[in-house]
Design a protein around this nucleic acid. Sequence first.
DNA 1: CCACTGATTGACAGCGCTGTCATTCAATGA
DNA 2: TCATTGAATGACAGCGCTGTCAATCAGTGG
Lengths: 338, 338
Amino acid sequence: MSKEKSSRKPTLFEVAARAGVSEITASRALRGSNVVTPETLQKVQEAAASLGYLRNRLAGALAGGPSNQVGVILPSLSNIVFPDVLKGLEDRLEHAGFHPVLGISNYDPQQEEQLIRNLLSWRPAGLVIAPSGMTDASRAMLSGADLPVVEIMDIDTDPVDMAVGMSHRGAGLAMARHLIARGYRRLAYVGHDIAHDHRAAARLDGFRRGLTEAGLTLAGCVTLSEPSSVALGRRGLHMLLQDGGTPPDLVYFSNDDMAVGGVFHCMAAGISLPDQLAIAGFNGLEIGQSLPVALTTTASHRTLIGETAAGCILKRLSGEDTARMTDVGFSLVEGGTS
Amino acid sequence: MSKEKSSRKPTLFEVAARAGVSEITASRALRGSNVVTPETLQKVQEAAASLGYLRNRLAGALAGGPSNQVGVILPSLSNIVFPDVLKGLEDRLEHAGFHPVLGISNYDPQQEEQLIRNLLSWRPAGLVIAPSGMTDASRAMLSGADLPVVEIMDIDTDPVDMAVGMSHRGAGLAMARHLIARGYRRLAYVGHDIAHDHRAAARLDGFRRGLTEAGLTLAGCVTLSEPSSVALGRRGLHMLLQDGGTPPDLVYFSNDDMAVGGVFHCMAAGISLPDQLAIAGFNGLEIGQSLPVALTTTASHRTLIGETAAGCILKRLSGEDTARMTDVGFSLVEGGTS
DNA sequence: CCACTGATTGACAGCGCTGTCATTCAATGA
DNA sequence: TCATTGAATGACAGCGCTGTCAATCAGTGG
């Protein structure tokens, strides 16, 4: 015990000395290089173990070794969508020995820029970002950084490097067409904070386009400037229906949380689904599908987006080249609520 | 353009040269030290901006500067509980300029140990971990690492350094007492994968203890070895009730997801709540409270756990000393389902 | 027996930054 | 006028590791 310089951590030098080899050989041994003799390997491993050696990757990365950190910037963790994406990312990265370094932008371009600067200063191996209105400075940093960058969620805009996601405008449009084909004519909308959530806005835009195609217009629209939640959907539908005038025959919600709230309102108010009122959401969350009457919705492949984005980073790092755009698509889920 | 060595990033040296000061002065200026003259500060900032300089924190941290990374190890992201905790963590850390570096252990002590080793090798400023049966090696690394470590969720076991959480055993016990006081006598349980989720197991244990206190035993018990979900809760209750014999008057679910599934089963099967059957859950999720009939449950303060844990790390880093154990408590939510 | 080959190992020089001290210099008071 | 002080700046020496290239050495064929 007295031999140790108290709290200082053992370095590679000490491991090497103990194993009777040079630093670089110890380094190679511990990194699993296949040029070291089995005996050397064992000596080094034993030395490291007995010293309680812990590799310092800061030094390694600085000296030119690879980093196994991947920056991840998401706008929020409150919306279940992003934990789902993160799960996909984490899962794929973990298997390759990488770690996500997380930053939350709160849908704010300024914070986002700050995060990019911060995360890049750790020289990560790659960056995954769900953009929230990137500034010019943000774009400049990303394109100048010389690392794989994946913009996720959306594929409606041109990415700096790569993009993985789906067309939200397309999803809204598809849902409108589907519902109109099923005979609905008085279609209304209940949504959450659209000013910040531009993907929800894109869906609404697509939905409207679908109505226009069929010569229709929105038969009612309530948007509340709060984050989406079940309670908000419930309240939103309540407000919409109180509005007097001919009631809609269907309500498209900004997402499933909101839609489930709508379903609950109907249950509580004795409105029968889908005869009196039909409901559609977006995301394909488990909760919606486990409802007594399954929710009509669009399944977004959130975890797949994460997995695919991670895959792009890893692929690029291993030298392969990758698609600039990956559309993971979406699928209509015909439930019982419409 | 030709002046630049093509893709090599500008270093502090170049910034300093351009500003006509020494490296260390440039360093101080960019780090916001208050010993540099305003003029010097401006010169350096201009030089940095015009060069597109991006600080390299790898080098900084290696040279003895502080790290702003905090390792975070969670067992899963599928269970909404952990994103909630992560949200609290992230929020507090972000405000202090820190970033969580994430690892998911999948409830596996071996993976957990691997993650600890990996994350510590980046020399983070602190570590937050929701333990999943830490190995001796894990404990050894944590106690030898000389950084603030917070074990979260549970406070039923003795931590290496600090702990923030609640007593799950206590929560189960409190719920049992509450329900028994309300007159329920035939109490059953429906749960998910308890083998891996030892916190759910602890709640069940506490619940049982409460029954024993009152001279009762569990009037039925279904546990399914799958991750918790609404669908699983629905299925679980269905199985429990098919079991023949006298039906229970209340079912305690392993968490709110499961309990909501139970509520849905009742709705679909025409079982009236809470007359024919009462239901209780755990967590206090938004969805349960927005149900047509609000769920009786125990609110766990998940985000608060994250915030508090982050607070402990930050406090310790700033030299203050911190409580070894922080109990964030829980609160009974008396809904309409019991 | 010797040049030659391939497999291991090692010496060296940094990676880019910051802590620690030392230095400079103008302002202050005696 | 000169010693004294404090503010601003700088020189230096690493932090711990890995890429690059050179050296070593046993085994091989001529």
